[in-house]
Design a protein around this nucleic acid. Structure first.
Lengths: 349, 349
DNA sequence: CGATGACATGACATCGGTGTCATAGGCGAG
DNA sequence: CTCGCCTATGACACCGATGTCATGTCATCG
C-alpha cells in the first residue's frame, strides 16, 4: 500500500502539498493539483486512517455492542421482533453522518462486554451504544468507558442516556382503538409477568379501559408465556381455554407479541373458530414477516425499533458534538403506533 | 486518554519497557512488571491501535459489506430468511479468532459499495466479505480492493472465492424424503422463475423424482411468486387453485420459502382443508420464527446461513494467513439439511 | 520603486506505539 | 581475573499522516 510520500515523489511535490490536495485546506495551484490527483489515481493511493487519527485524535468510529447477532441464532424465547432492526436504524443514521460503525456481539455472554469495550477503546471510538434484545434494565457497572455511552431498548441504574419504546402508550392506543370499534370484552394475553414491557403495557391497557369507563376484569388478563415453562404453546393453550370458557368470553384477544398471535391463529383454527368473524386478534411488534403474511393480516402495534435506532444515533452524535449529555430528556420514549389490519372486526353495539 | 509515556513516567521506566510488559516480548524484571501494571491500572491506560497499526501494518480488522441491515427494513419481497444470520456466523468466527469486524451497509444502493470499500481501505482492513441477500450473481467489477475479497450467498464472473447454499441438494433431499414417506404427487410452488435458487432447486426436485422412478408432471411445478406481480398473495392463490383442480391433485405442496408456506396455511384454511391430514406442506429456509411457531410446525429445508457465515470467515482468514486463495475449492457449497416437523404426514401406499 | 500582502509550497516536528541497537550489571567458565 | 553470555533496560529512529512556521514568487498600491 503506497503512502503519501510515494504520491508526493511521483507528483514531484512535498507530502504536505499532497495533504492539502486531499483535505482541501490551504491553496494549491491548478496544475499541481492535477499532477497530484493523477499520481493518486496511478498509485491507487488510499490515506491511512491510523496515521490520520494519531494527529487528529478523531477516529470517526462508533462502537456498538449487541447480543442481537448471535442471540437470534437460538430463538429459545419468543421475545418478538429481532432487535437487529435497532441496529439498522443506527447504521443508517451513522452512515448518513459519515461515521463508521464497529459492531461487536456479546454472543449472549455478559462477561464478554468488558473485553469488547477494551477493543473499542483501543480503536478510540468516539461513542458507544449498547443495544438490548428486549426492553429491560441492564447492569453495565463494570463497563467503564472514557467516551459517551448510550443505551437503547434498556436503561440502567446509573442513569445513562437511553431510548425506550413507549410500551404503555402503545398498548393504551391499541386498547382505545379496540374500544372505538365497539369491543368491550378485551382480553390481554401477556408475555412473562416480570418483564418491563408486560408491566407497562398492562398499565396502558388498564388506563385505556378506565378512560372508556369499562371495568377491569382480572379474568381477561392472562400470562400467556412463562420464562420457566418448557412448552410455551401449552401455556398459551391454557390461557385460551380459560378465556373461551368464561360466561362472557372476550370479543378480541390482544397478544404479547406477533408470534404468540401466530400460534393463537393455529389454536383457534383447531377449535374451528374463524378470525375475525367469531373472534378478533391483535398482536404486538408489527413483525412484518408474520403480521403481513398471516391470513387475515394481523392488527398489531409497531415496536419502533428502527426509529429507536435512529434516535440513539442522533442523540449520541449530538452529545459528542456538544460535549454534554441530553439534559431534559435523558430517557426518551419512542411512539408506538397502532397498525390496523384485518384481524380485528368492528362489533355492533 | 493517557499514553504509554504517561505510564512509563508513573512507573519510572522507559516507554519501551511498558511496551514489553504489554506485549510479552523481551524480558522484564518481576518488580518492574508489577510497577508497570499498577501504573496501567491507575491511569486506565488503553494502548492505541492506530499507533500500533502504523508500525506493524496489521489492523486486525475485517470489512463486511451487506445490504442485510437496511434492506430488511422494507420487506417488499418475500426473499426468505434474513441474511443477517450469515453475518452472525461471520461475527462469531471472527470474534473467536480475535479479529474485529467492521460492518457497513449499502442501504440497498449498489453505488455505495465503492465508497464503503474506500473507507475500509483507509482503515487497512485485512480482508473483505460481501454478503448478498439471496443466492445470486453480483458484479463487483468496480470494487477493486487491495486485500482478499470473499463472497457469501453470491458469486461473480471474475471467479472470486465464494460460499453458496446447496440449493440443488436441499430440494433433492427434501423430495427424496417425501417420496420415502409415500408421496408420489409432489407439487412444487417456486419463487421467481429466474432466480438461481429456483433453477437449482427445480433441478434437485426433478433429479430426485427421476431417481425414484416418478415421472415429472409439469402441472405440479408452479411459479408462486413473481417479482413484477403487485399482489404476491393472488399469484400464490392462482397456483393453489390450479393444483387442487387437477384430476389427481398433489398430496404435498413444497413452497419456495417458509413465508409462502405460512400464507399457504391461510389459503388452505379458507378452503377448509386440514394440514397435514388432507394435504401436506413443506417450506424452505427453516425460518424458525415461522416454521416452529406455525400449527402444525413446518417441515422445511434449512438454509444454512449461519454455517455459511462461519465458512467464509474461516476461508478468508485461511487465505490471509497463507497468502493464497483456496485452490481446489474456490466455490464452496454448504449442505442444506431437511428439518422434519409435523406439516407432512406419511401416505399409505 | 519599494513595501505589502496573497498565494503556493516545503521543512520539520509531532502523534503513540514498536523494532533495532546499545549498554550496564551479574554470573559461570576457562 | 577476565572473557563471554545472558538478563534487564533505555535511547532513538520510524511508521504516515497533519499542524506550524518559514520561504519564495508575484501582483498591487502608494
Amino acid at each position: 500500500m503506497s503512502t503519501i510520500y510515494d504520491v508526493a515523489d511521483r507528483a514531484g511535490v512535498s507530502a504536505k502539498t499532497v495533504s492539502r490536495v486531499l483535505n482541501g485546506d490551504g491553496p494549491v495551484g491548478e496544475k499541481t493539483r492535477a499532477r497530484v490527483n493523477q499520481a493518486i489515481r496511478e498509485l491507487g493511493y488510499v490515506p491511512s486512517q491510523a496515521a490520520r487519527m494519531m494527529r487528529s485524535n478523531k477516529s470517526g468510529l462508533i462502537g456498538l455492542i449487541t447480543g442481537a447477532i448471535s442471540r437470534n441464532a437460538e430463538p429459545t424465547e419468543p421475545t418478538g421482533l429481532p432487535d437487529l432492526h435497532i441496529v439498522q436504524g443506527i447504521q443508517a443514521h451513522m452512515a448518513a453522518q459519515g461515521m463508521t460503525l464497529m459492531i461487536a456481539d456479546t454472543g449472549g455472554a455478559q462477561d464478554r462486554v468488558k473485553p469488547l469495550i477494551q477493543t473499542f477503546q483501543e480503536h478510540r471510538v468516539e461513542g458507544l451504544i449498547y443495544v438490548a434484545d428486549y426492553h429491560r434494565e441492564v447492569d453495565l457497572s463494570d463497563a467503564l468507558a472514557s467516551c459517551p455511552v448510550h443505551l437503547v431498548n434498556c436503561y440502567d441504574a446509573t442513569g445513562r442516556p437511553c431510548v425506550l419504546p413507549d410500551d404503555r402508550g402503545g398498548q393504551h392506543a391499541l386498547t382505545k382503538r379496540l374500544v372505538a370499534h365497539g369491543h368491550r370484552r378485551i382480553a390481554y394475553v401477556t408475555l412473562d409477568r416480570d418483564m418491563d414491557a408486560t408491566r407497562l403495557r398492562s398499565q396502558g391497557y388498564r388506563d385505556a379501559l378506565a378512560q372508556a369507563g369499562i371495568g377491569f376484569d382480572p379474568a381477561l388478563l392472562n400470562e400467556g408465556h412463562k420464562q420457566e415453562a418448557p412448552d410455551a404453546n401449552a401455556c398459551l393453550a391454557r390461557a385460551i381455554d380459560h378465556l373461551l370458557e368464561l360466561s362472557t368470553p372476550p370479543t378480541v384477544i390482544c397478544c404479547g407479541n406477533d408470534e404468540m398471535a401466530l400460534r393463537l391463529y393455529g389454536h383457534l383454527r383447531r377449535r374451528g373458530m374463524r378470525v375475525p368473524e367469531e373472534i378478533s386478534i391483535a398482536g404486538y411488534d408489527n413483525y412484518r414477516a408474520i403480521a403481513e403474511t398471516l391470513f387475515p393480516p394481523l392488527t398489531t402495534v409497531e415496536l419502533p425499533y428502527r426509529v429507536m435506532g435512529e434516535r440513539v444515533a442522533a442523540r449520541l452524535l449530538a452529545q459528542i458534538a456538544s460535549g454534554t449529555p441530553p439534559v431534559d430528556d435523558l430517557c426518551e420514549l419512542t411512539a408506538s403506533p397502532v397498525v390496523w389490519r384485518d384481524s380485528v372486526t368492528a362489533i355492533q353495539t
